[in-house]
Nucleic acid binder design. Structure first.
Lengths: 250, 250
DNA sequence: GAGTGGTCTAGACCACTAA
DNA sequence: TAGTGGTCTAGACCACTCC
């Protein structure tokens, strides 16, 4: 006869992680505070180093803690920026509404610290969405207070924007959307597809992400009147730095 | 004098992880395929077991692979459900638009497999958003094909919904929004705040999430005419199971 | 220079899966 | 029962941070 399920207590490293997590969640350990290090855990619990490391790895992979070489393991901070999907239907006219999540983007300016613009063959998605074989692509990285928070890659149908300022570093007053307007293709409708996942190593490096930090990926398509797609913008956001807000009617 | 930066090659475990990742991304290893196990990696690269484990842990924490006890490590699948934030402005009228991400929710039905309804003191957020001290709370878990994909917790001002079907398991035809309408508080405006993070252990358990799987958290507030907040719905989604879609005008 | 986290080895016992 | 991943020990050398 087969045995009934047995009682299993959590492994040591997990119980240690649970304890530390509780201290973080309860505020006993606050933003930026130092967690007990590997040596401290070894001494306190009488465990091997690998086990102490495993306990800390749990919190690191949960995005609650960040290791700093030669220094220690610290409580991670969450100071999001609020990104409005639709400004037009803003919270103003629904004044009773209180923001659920704090964000401190106010007063801090976006900085674009990298730009690459080139014409290239459309990838599978761009080709499918824009219905174009060649595209002009604008890649950039946004930072706030010197910290990178977002990667953005915009695709435009090459035939449409060839010879315009959209293919130049300086797109002029009003930016690319104003230039699309000059062409008679003002964007009037937007679709955003939002996903979240762990970053690839290249993304983690460009955004300076520690372990346990997911990214939010927004695939945004801009349509001109007549339903003509004029831009595909693929954005990769540090999930710890953003709260997305969308307003809409019933 | 201080030395200039030295050349650092990647550690072994990272190079192994990179190789395996490449095979996954390129499709050499497809959905559900088995990765080389710890023993295989030890033999192939002549490394210790801990090092092989570390290599696999990288992919697991990136959400690219899933370990199965006693069996092996397998390539993770990504089969998202499309969730429309706003159905009214659907893609129909922007017919040229092609969905960027495939989703296979069609034909599969949501199942609510857990319900808990109770009156309780409002938490900090609920109190702030709804302006109520007591709330009725409906907790549920949605599954698709028997797999849990979403936790949802709805809060209603207790004074508003007391004695209505909103406090009962069966809310009647049209659900809670129809009942709110009966009260003269039909929701007409919605605000959704979207974040992503790693799940807490309790969330990971309820959703059956493996390591390296983030969650998307949607805080949705429903407003009746006059800007009266009538519901706060806090949803926790398996990020690997969802693509959120939002449509809006310029 | 002392302490920290990063990498790695060489073992051990366990629970679980699958043939 | 053989093979797998899960947990844990007891060491080692390294690069880095901070004083």
């Amino acid at each position: 006869m087969t045995e009934s399920p047995v009682h299993h207590e959590s492994p040591i490293y997990r119980r240690i992680a649970d304890r530390l997590r509780e201290q973080i969640m309860s505020g006993t350990l606050g933003d930026g505070d130092r967690l007990p290090g590997e040596n401290a855990l070894m001494a306190e619990y009488g465990i091997a180093r690998a086990t102490a490391r495993q306990a800390l790895a749990v919190l690191i992979n949960e995005g609650l803690a960040v290791p700093r070489r030669g220094s220690g393991v610290y409580v991670r901070l969450f100071r999001p920026i609020r990104r409005h999907g639709s400004r037009r239907l803003s919270r103003q006219q629904w004044g009773q509404g209180t923001a659920i999540w704090d964000s401190d983007a106010r007063g801090r300016a976006y900085t674009v610290d990298e730009i690459q613009i080139q014409r290239e063959a459309a990838g599978e998605q761009a080709a499918q969405v824009l219905g174009a074989q060649d595209v002009w692509v604008r890649r950039r990285r946004y930072s706030v207070d010197g910290r990178p928070v977002q990667l953005a890659v915009s695709h435009f149908p090459a035939d449409l924007v060839e010879g315009t300022a959209i293919t130049l570093p300086d797109t002029g007053p009003g930016g690319v959307y104003a230039r699309l307007g000059d062409l008679g293709h003002t964007p009037v409708h937007f679709t955003e597809e939002v996903r979240a996942r762990m970053p690839l190593p290249g993304e983690a490096e460009l955004l300076g992400l520690p372990a346990g930090n997911p990214v939010i990926v927004i695939s945004r398509v801009a349509y001109a009147v007549g339903g003509v797609p004029v831009e595909l913008n693929e954005m990769t956001l540090d999930a710890a730095s953003y709260v997305l807000q969308y307003d809409f009617e019933a």
